[in-house]
Write a protein that binds this DNA or RNA. Structure first.
Lengths: 185, 185
DNA sequence: GTCTATATCCCGATAGAC
DNA sequence: GTCTATCGGGATATAGAC
């Protein structure tokens, strides 16, 4: 793997675990086994490298969500596939954790990919719900946009509760509550 | 206001906006208009001061939630009072944001008040739901614990989506989806 | 209680040699 | 492309005077 690639991947890992404010160029270099001069040769600085890493993570997350949401099966099955997909709950969301970072939110450049990822996710879930409603697979009274927002929020908030508790349990409970929302009763 | 008090309140504000990792003793001193020596006289260091600030914020949050959840009215009305209570959505949650902070999560001392706050909140909401169910104010099929977790998670995740979007809208949508969950149908 | 001085290390970046 | 040197500043304290 070449040096820019190692730098980007290392930054992805560190942003995930420590956020933008908590990640230093030096830590990135050590994790990537790259020198100071090397990093500043390939990237203009911390923000530039972070942008590349965030875009990469956003693309990965989107691909994984799309795989669950576009699979075979009914709408509720595809939502369920998304809800129950493999997650390191205590590590949290690569993208969602960045929404808490003051320097990310203060920078339009760095915030954009975070924003776009969640916009895309909510619309994608909303479309699945709408399809399912029309096929009678989901309750007809469900508001697709509101329900999609609730699903995305419950996942993000589930991470928060789980990390606070030091256990994935609250995440699972919160997702169970969401499942009830989708029941045809 | 005396110096320790000013230091605690300043730390509360800075933790809310920048998190633990992003808050320096120097910034606290400047915000509190206190000297270096003064701060280290009243507190042993950054972690000590942060603990006092977190405990204070946790107490405040709990009091505000309790006011909504223990008010007069039916169970759905009290939940609604909690959901629609005044919030600076784009600022996020004083306590929830700390769950994203690696140094908070790594320290049992600092994580405890965060954990306890969310435990209390979920149990408190769960009790309200259970009461409402027994009085026929809420659907009998609702699982109190799961629903309470979903409500707490939707609020926390709503903050994440709103901050990513730079707008309170996704928060409001997510809360709307939760309201549907509580409808007697 | 509060002040200033000092210590050690890290931050984020630039410069110029190789 | 990568290295080492250097920069001005901040992080997180400790020491000791007042």
């Amino acid at each position: 793997m070449d040096t820019p690639e190692r730098l980007i991947r290392s930054t992805q890992e560190l942003l995930w675990d420590r956020g933008y404010v908590g990640t230093s160029p030096k830590a990135i270099q050590q994790h990537a086994d790259a020198g100071q001069g090397s990093m500043y040769h390939h990237f203009t600085g911390k923000a530039d490298l972070a942008l590349a890493a965030i875009q990469r993570s956003a693309g990965e997350l989107r691909a994984e969500a799309e795989a669950a949401l576009s699979g075979n099966g009914t709408a509720p099955e595809r939502i369920e596939a998304y809800l129950s997909r493999e997650r390191d709950v205590l590590r949290g969301c690569r993208i969602g954790r960045l929404a808490q970072d003051p320097d990310i939110i203060a920078s339009p450049e760095l915030r954009r990919p975070v924003h776009e990822t969640f916009e895309w996710l909510q619309q994608r879930i909303s479309r699945v719900i709408d399809e399912g409603r029309q096929r009678g697979e989901l309750p007809p009274h469900l508001d697709p946009d509101a329900t999609a927002a609730t699903i995305a929020a419950a996942v993000q908030g589930g991470y928060v509760l789980a990390r606070a508790a030091g256990s994935p349990e609250p995440f699972e409970r919160a997702i169970d509550g969401v499942r009830a929302l989708l029941k045809v009763d």
